[in-house]
Design a protein around this nucleic acid. Structure first.
Lengths: 145, 145
DNA sequence: CTAGATGCAAACAGTTTGCGTCACT
DNA sequence: AGTGACGCAAACTGTTTGCATCTAG
């Protein structure tokens, strides 16, 4: 199986044990469409591995994300945050510590859309996140973006 | 107080009672810097209103966000989501139902940065969210973006 | 006066942790 | 053989809900 070979290779690259559970979790994510949650992934993985635990799914999703084998939809998950800055602005986000800094709008050219959006979708604004590693975090540790 | 006047006006505009708690919560958010969480806001509001409850803070933050008086940092909060689509892409996000659709990268001009970023910040990529109201949601109901 | 707002406590959902056992390398 | 992964259950965090009481309009 080609993708399994690729999987083992990438695990080796990051010093991860290529366990059966990991393989199934990884291939399940790739087989799902959209932006699946841990629960959804767990439900599908369970069909192949009925005794797997949800904790294992969580641990491995984090492992994959930290290694760069998978990406999360947004770094802004977690608790609710409100904007105290009421001016239009964008965000500079550290992929390691998740800190957020405001970037005023003029520093970024207005984003232009050349998309055929779904008919009837009413665009209200465009949010830009500049992702990377902040000065404080550019010491050691793994990737995560 | 000018800002209080403005507050009462905006509440009236949305049919919200201009309670003392609401005023303090609103002004507290405006007085904080960055991207405060409900707990942080609660802690500061409590100094003026020692008997306020955390539930009231939550309820009112939601009220303000739904009315457009405040904005949340990201629509992607909540549970962890992973990308099943491994190609570089952007997102089309509905501000009402929070559904996410992928937009392939070519439909959006590469974003150019003209910012003086904090020295030492290493940019890895730029994420664009096109926000608006999806066809399914453009029936009734309030704003929230 | 009355609809809607507050405060409290209990319930919830999603996620993490500690620990004994098991399996890659 | 040893380090790291697994599975389980319990703990936690952030958030929501139901309900009795209060208050702005």
């Amino acid at each position: 199986m080609k993708s399994e070979f690729n999987f083992r290779e990438r695990c080796h690259e990051y010093g991860l044990a290529a366990t059966h559970q990991r393989l199934v979790i990884y291939e399940t994510v790739r087989s799902l469409h959209g932006h699946p949650s841990p629960e959804i992934i767990y439900a599908k993985v369970r069909k192949k591995l009925p005794s797997i635990s949800l904790a294992t799914v969580y641990k491995n999703l984090h492992t994959f994300i930290a290694s760069g084998m998978l990406r999360e939809v947004s770094l802004h998950r977690g608790s609710l945050r409100v904007e105290s800055n009421q001016e239009p602005h964008h965000h500079l986000v550290c992929t390691r510590c998740r800190s957020i800094t405001d970037l005023d709008e003029e520093g970024i050219d207005p984003v232009r859309l050349r998309h055929k959006l779904p008919p009837g979708f009413l665009v209200s604004r465009i949010a830009v996140d500049v992702l990377g590693v902040c000065p404080k975090c550019s010491g050691r540790s793994r990737n995560s973006f």
